[in-house]
Structure formats: C-alpha cells, structure tokens
C-alpha cells in the first residue's frame, strides 16, 4: 500500500517539475506554433542555457534565477543567428512552409544537434557539473518544499503568462499571431513577415535558454553535453500534448507530464513511468492532434 503522504508529495513535486518542463518546452512551442518549424537541436540550446548558468555561477557568482535573465538576453542574439542561417532560406517569400522545407529544417537542425553536443564535449569536457545553490526549504504541513524549486515554478508560470499577454495585447504580439495563422495576413497588418518570423524565433530561443538556466535548479548535477537528449523529447511531447502554438498549452502539457512521471513512480519503476510519459504522445497525435484541450 502506497502511503497517501507519498502520493501527495509526488503530486506536488510533479507539479513543480511540470512547470519547469513547461518553461523548457515553451520556446519550442512558440517557434513551432508561429514559424511551423521544429528545431531538433532544441535540447542543445537548453544545454547551452544550462552551461551559461553554470559558468555565470562559477565566474560571476550568479544564482540560476539571475543567470536566466542573462541567458534570456543572449538567447535573442542566438535566435536571430539561428533564424538567418537555418530558416530564412526556406521561409523567405513563401506563403506557407512546404513539406520539403520542413524536411530540410528537420535534417539540418538534426545535424546541428550532433555538432553542438559533440563540440560541447570538447569545449566543456563530458563531466557532469552542477550549480551549488540551495536557498533552503519551507515546511508545508508534513512536507518540506525546496525554496529554489518553488521560485523556479513561480518564474515559469510568470514567463508563460507574460507571453500570453504579450501576444494578445501588443501590436508586435498581434503581428506574430497573424503570421502564425496566415503569412500573407502579416503584410495586411503592415508588418514585414521576415521581421516577424525572426523576432518570434529570437523570443523562442530567449525563453529556451532562460529555461535551460532555470532547469539547473532542478537537476543539481545534470549539466552535461548530452543533456539535450532527454529534454528535447520531453519538450516535443509537451508541445504536442498542449497543441503547438497554444501558449498555455506548454503549461498544460508540462503539468500533465510532470504529474504523470512523479505520481506513477509511487506505483511502477521509474523507467516505466518515463516510458508511459513518452508514449502519451501517440494517442494524443491519433485522437487529439490539436492538443488535449481544444
């Protein structure tokens, strides 16, 4: 018999983990939803964000929350660079992305992921590193919650809700939304499609790299060149669960995944909990291709 306390604790930790997953996947969601391109090297940019936080901690004494801001700013530049080297040739002047272009971006970003993760081994060595930052715990009844994870959870929710407000309430946000629905409509609202698409990509990278920094709070030792191999597929599943382009979908998908993984562990071995979480993607794609909530 599994103790109720364990399940409750798993539920709570699962929700916090889910929020971190959500922010890590959110950048992918934005790019996928707007530009209709899936960046296979998404995990490697999370890795880059995590290493950013690590080095800022080692050399500047920054805590991961502060590093997330710096990473986010760097992500803008990385995103623009990525857009113009990988996507621009395929998207420029098109009314909608063709299946052929989709394949080109899929394969080229796959090459990028191989390139980046293995270059990282040479640059950072293959050692696992972590950031020594723990602001303590807070007691909540019979549970003790790590404060660091709690801050990250709050920030994650904040980032995602800000992006919703941004897309709904600002002129640029509206232009991005218009682009995601119909590229020609972007021109009707008086915006340059390339500018809009590259901005959306840059914002997506900014969130991805900031997410990488926030993730380091959850994985005290897991920063390493191949970490993307876990967080990229998790992000793919989250975005599909939530529905690509639905900003709140990241949160929904993340929470679902986090809770499934942690609560299932009370009943089955961890490996199987992850297997179930990964395979959730298949029925969703079959029966609800637009995400679990319409």
């Amino acid at each position: 018999m599994v103790a109720l306390a364990v399940i409750l604790s798993d539920l709570l930790f699962g929700m916090m983990l889910g929020c971190v997953f959500a922010v890590v996947a959110h950048g992918l969601n934005l790019i996928w939803g707007v530009v209709k391109v899936v960046n296979i090297a998404h995990g490697e940019f999370i890795m880059l964000g995590a290493y950013g936080a690590y080095f800022l901690n080692v050399f500047g004494g920054f805590n991961p929350l502060l590093s997330a801001v710096v990473d986010g700013a760097l992500g803008i530049f990385v995103g623009y660079a990525f857009y113009f080297s990988f996507l621009h040739r395929e998207l420029r002047g098109k009314e909608r992305i063709t299946l052929r272009s989709e394949m080109v971006t899929l394969v080229s970003t796959f090459g990028l992921s191989l390139f980046m993760s293995n270059l990282a081994v040479v640059a950072f060595t293959g050692d696992f590193v972590g950031i020594n930052w723990s602001p303590g715990t807070v007691a909540l009844g019979f549970l003790e919650l790590p404060l660091g994870a709690l801050y990250v959870t709050i920030l994650a929710v904040l980032i995602i809700s800000t992006s919703v407000v941004f897309l709904d309430r600002t002129y640029i946000g509206n232009a991005i939304k218009a682009y995601s629905q119909d590229i020609t409509a972007t021109q009707l609202v008086g915006a340059n499609p390339t500018k809009v698409a590259s901005l959306a990509t840059a914002l997506g990278f900014s969130i991805t790299m900031a997410g990488g920094a926030l993730l380091t709070v959850w994985i005290p030792t897991g920063i390493n060149p191949y970490m993307g191999a876990l967080y990229a597929p998790i992000s793919f599943v989250i975005v599909v669960l939530g529905g690509p382009g639905k900003m709140l979908g990241s949160l929904l998908g993340g929470l679902t995944l986090g809770v499934v993984i942690d609560v299932l562990q009370a009943f089955v071995p961890v490996s199987l909990a992850y297997a179930v979480a990964f395979l959730l993607l298949i029925p969703v794609l079959l029966f609800r291709p637009e995400g679990i909530v319409k």
Binding site: V2, A3, V6, S9, D10, I219, L230, Q265, V270, S271
Partner: peptide
C-alpha cells in the same frame, strides 16, 4: 532509475516514508 533521469525526489520521499534509517546505492559520479 534510468541514468538519463536527473530527479530522484520521488524515490527519496518514498524511502523516507518507508521508515528507512540508512541510504545505500548511487551509481556513477553524478
């Protein structure tokens, strides 16, 4: 737990609530 996973809070919680005194195990460095 699979080596790709970097979160063992559920297991530690379960071990604690099972009344364990001592912890043995681990794996590689990380």
């Amino acid at each position: 737990y699979p080596t790709t996973v970097n979160d063992v809070t559920p297991q530690l919680t379960a071990a604690k609530s099972a009344g364990a005194d001592d912890l043995l195990g681990g794996g590689h460095f990380n």
